[in-house]
């Protein structure tokens, strides 16, 4: 994209700026409100309502969480660990599977691809999934419990990457390499992987968020709370708080024994959940760079 840009190009870019600024404002305002309501004094919320600039600031929610730091720190570690390992494994599997399925004359490829697509439309439900991962492959209380069930690979990602490889990576490149005597695995490593960076960044982002936000696997397959992820903690606190609030009359005195976290604490935890992803996101963006085909074909 060299040379002088035409007036039209400049106009389109200007419209782009305006639209993106609007979208960014709409995205950031609620987040700001999220942060400010996590530091707003509870009685002030009830009296003055939520506001972007809280009149009475209180960091008690964060102090409360700081008190639980041992547990939260550990949960952070578990989440980051599973996200990094899981996403790496997943990208490897998804790209390899998708590449093979893009080989044009591979016998049985359509059948396999449809079988994979089918998994997006139907599933057996939680109970049979649980039984499979406890009776057939027992993942309980191992690291696999957090990595494997439902997160590692899915039909959607395979479809995305396969379509990209089929449509956007020139076939001539692969054929040329093949003629030079390169094996399939060699082509995969040398050509497919580097050239599918944009789609792998997309799929990687999707997968990483899947791992980051997952709490189901922890809930079902991990009984030791040492291995609880940050999302599982947040989810347990949130869902139980609202359950207890709506059953308080039945629970009676039992409910009163329980410290239900305040709204501010719940907000503070979700701030803590989001911040690391925001910080890590630029890392992904490195791979969102276009225009490398030219060099690849020529070289």
């Amino acid at each position: 994209m060299t040379g002088v840009r035409s007036r039209q190009e400049k106009t389109i870019a200007a419209i782009g700026h305006i639209i993106m600024i609007l979208a960014a404002a709409l995205a950031i305002a609620p987040f700001w409100l999220l942060v400010s309501s996590s530091i707003q004094e509870e009685s002030s919320i009830i009296r003055d309502g939520y506001s972007f600039l809280p009149k009475e600031v209180s960091f008690s929610a964060y102090q409360y969480l700081l008190g639980e730091w041992k547990q939260i720190g550990r949960a952070y570690f578990v989440t980051i660990f599973t996200t990094v390992i899981g996403t790496t494994l997943s990208l490897f599997l998804v790209s390899m599977t998708s590449y093979v399925l893009s080989i044009r004359d591979l016998p049985g490829r359509t059948f396999i691809f449809i079988a994979i697509l089918l998994t997006m439309l139907i599933n057996g439900g939680q109970v049979s999934m649980y039984i499979t991962y406890t009776r057939i492959v027992d993942v309980r209380n191992t690291i696999f419990a957090l990595l494997v069930p439902n997160l590692l690979l899915n039909g959607f990602n395979v479809m995305l990457v396969r379509n990209y490889v089929t449509n956007s990576i020139p076939r001539e490149l692969q054929e040329a390499a093949s003629i030079d005597g390169a094996g399939l695995f060699h082509i995969y490593i040398r050509i497919i992987l580097p050239l599918s960076k944009p789609i792998l960044a997309t799929v990687g982002l999707l997968t990483a968020l899947g791992y980051w936000n997952d709490w189901i696997n922890g809930l079902y397959f991990v009984s030791d709370s040492k291995w609880y992820s940050i999302q599982l903690m947040l989810n347990q606190i949130n869902s139980n708080a609202s359950f207890l609030a709506s059953h308080s009359d039945q629970l009676g005195q039992m409910a009163n024994q329980i410290d239900i976290p305040t709204v501010a604490v719940r907000m503070a935890i979700s701030v803590l959940v989001i911040i690391p992803i925001v910080l890590a996101y630029p890392f992904f963006q490195k791979y969102f760079t276009g225009g490398m085909m030219v060099g690849a074909v020529k070289g």
């Binding site: 599977t97 599933n123 057996g124 049979s128 999934m129 494997v148 690979l153 399939l184």
Partner: peptide, 27 residues
């Protein structure tokens, strides 16, 4: 010629069988 391809496909397929196809009896 395609044996390496099928080998490369194996881990992914095994996952779909365990994670998706076996539990389908739940339907």
């Amino acid at each position: 010629r395609f044996i390496p391809a099928y080998i490369m496909l194996l881990p992914g397929l095994a996952y779909f069988v365990i994670n998706n196809y076996i539990p389908m009896y739940g339907i």
